[in-house]
Computed example of a mutant assay.
Amino acid sequence: MRLVLLGPPGAGKGTQAQRLVDRHNIVQLSTGDMLRAAVQAGTPIGLQAKAVMESGGLVSDEIVIGIIADRIAEPDAKNGFILDGFPRTVAQAEALDRLLEEKGLELDAVVELVVDQDKLVNRILNRAAEAQAKGEAVRKDDDPEVFKTRLEAYNRDTSIVAPYYHKKGQLQRIDGMKPIHEVSSSLDEVLGK
């Protein structure tokens, strides 16, 4: 199973991805984690990424696609993968299409978790309060101001990826405002098609 999960920060992508990882024996691929791992491993593409990151620049789509290409070739990705946080732009979506085509692969699903963005801030505040009540550290990105900045960046840069996949007939939308188990059930229905 090869899947792209789309949606704004706080929509529940990470929660649903982890559930799918456990249930289907696939891997969740986070571009940030992959970049750090490639840099640490000293791979050729990781060395390119390191040079860019050390200079304070943004890693190019070409480098990110190269890291994804390397990562999906690893044995643990044979059963499939979930891309979470990628693609962030239409150019990245097009590059991903080319990469998969070159490897003779295709996406099984592109799922967007649709949420009421006004209610997301409350969701994030509740998540932070629950973490504090349990004595856990509050995620840095759960700070309301940081979250609002991330949401603005999503609306400006990333929200256009869903229409790209919709035009291709690949996009499935799920109500991400429902309780977690209902979102999971809806996701199972979509993936069962």
Rank of each mutant, 00 (worst) to 15 (best):
R150N: 03
R156N: 11
I124H: 01
M53W: 06
S30W: 03
D142A: 02
S60C: 08
L99Y: 01
K103M: 12
K148M: 12
D157S: 14
L58C: 10
K148W: 08
D141K: 01
A153P: 09
G7H: 02
D116C: 10
I72W: 01
G56P: 06
A131M: 09
E112D: 10
N155A: 10
Y164T: 00
V52D: 04
S60M: 08
K140R: 15
P179Q: 08
L58E: 09
N122C: 08
G32T: 06
L107N: 01
L20G: 00
L96F: 03
Q117G: 13
Q28C: 15
Q132H: 09
Q172V: 13
K134D: 10
S184N: 13
L99S: 04
D97I: 00
I65M: 06
L83S: 00
S184Y: 08
V21K: 02
I65G: 01
Q40L: 14
N126T: 15
L29D: 02
A137I: 08
K178T: 11
E112S: 04
D142V: 00
P44N: 05
N155I: 09
L58F: 12
V146Q: 03
D76Q: 10
Q170T: 12
K178L: 15
D188T: 13
K167V: 09
E62Q: 13
K193V: 09
H166S: 15
T158M: 03
V115H: 03
D22T: 09
P163H: 03
L113I: 08
P87F: 06
N79W: 04
N126Q: 14
Y165W: 05
K50Q: 11
A109T: 08
G12L: 05
R123I: 04
E152N: 14
A133K: 14
G42A: 05
V21R: 04
E101Q: 15
